[in-house]
């Protein structure tokens, strides 16, 4: 008798539904990802991308279905620092009085004591993370003084410092400069080799083809899911975007 070994999946979301005060945001959504896989999450605004992220991080409760992270509950994934969330630039208060160092240190909070006193290992993790995103010159710069790209890299560094095995990235390429875009793509390859699992939402179809092994097309529920080469077809994309032709979305040549 064959049974599914849930341990094999980093993320295993089964028929999940999320509603806000009776308004359905997401229904019957499924997703299975293994270590080392990069999956693109594609859909219109309001299609439930952020809701999907929120469900995986436990920021909203699912009303139906089941989520297992490394075979365990979302709750224990939170305790184990398994998931890191990299917000959209618009999703954070850029005028908040904290420095690059402060933000990246927040990645360590979950594994510190109640007073959040950094140990030597936390300081080292933060230093290493900041170095990997090339912000060592900006350690004590307030985030208010950073460019969009630098800010994005700061939050990536926070995810690195957290040592999470799953990274959820909300629009990682929106509003960033070329240098940051290049650095992020290099990091993705490194993350993949380290066996991390990445789920990223994007509006940019070219990025999906470039980085994503898998793609999840959603419009309140899963429209299509599978290998990018098979699933990312003009027909599926058209369905996802409510009948708007992909030519219109990303040019006739693609």
């Amino acid at each position: 008798m064959e049974s599914i070994n849930y341990q094999n999946f980093r993320i295993d979301a089964e028929n999940i539904c999320v509603d806000y005060n009776g308004k359905v945001a997401l229904y019957d959504a499924n997703l299975r990802l293994k270590p080392g896989q990069i999956c693109g999450l594609v859909g219109m605004n309001g299609a439930g991308k952020t809701t999907f992220f929120n469900a995986l991080t436990g920021f909203v409760n699912i009303s139906k279905g089941k989520i297992r992270i490394n075979g365990e509950s979302v709750r224990s994934a939170q305790k184990d620092q398994t998931i890191a969330y990299v917000p959209q630039n618009e999703g954070i208060d850029s005028q908040f009085p904290v420095s690059v160092w402060d933000v990246v240190m927040m990645g360590r909070y979950g594994s510190m004591n109640i007073f959040r006193c950094p140990r030597e290992s936390d300081v080292q993790a933060v230093k290493d993370a900041i170095e990997r995103v090339d912000l060592t010159d900006h350690l004590s710069t307030p985030i208010a003084n950073l460019s969009g790209g630098q800010r994005k890299r700061t939050f990536l560094a926070r995810a690195i410092a957290q040592r999470a095995s799953i990274l959820l990235l909300d629009e990682p390429f929106s509003g960033v400069d070329i240098r940051t875009e290049k650095l992020i793509s290099e990091l993705f390859i490194q993350f993949k080799n380290e066996g991390k699992t990445i789920l990223l939402s994007t509006h940019d179809m070219i990025h999906v083809r470039e980085f994503c092994d898998l793609v999840l097309l959603i419009n309140k529920t899963v429209v299509a899911y599978g290998e990018t080469s098979e699933v990312f077809t003009p027909e599926n994309i058209t369905t996802t975007f409510g009948g708007i032709s992909p030519d219109f979305l990303f040019g006739p040549e693609s």
Partner: peptide
């Protein structure tokens, strides 16, 4: 004083706070 840093994180990025089990 005890929850100084947690409250700061809560004000700044509650989603991250939740994600790391706070």
């Amino acid at each position: 004083s005890i929850f100084r840093k947690d409250l700061m994180l809560y004000c700044f990025d509650p989603r991250h706070a939740k994600t790391v089990g706070i």
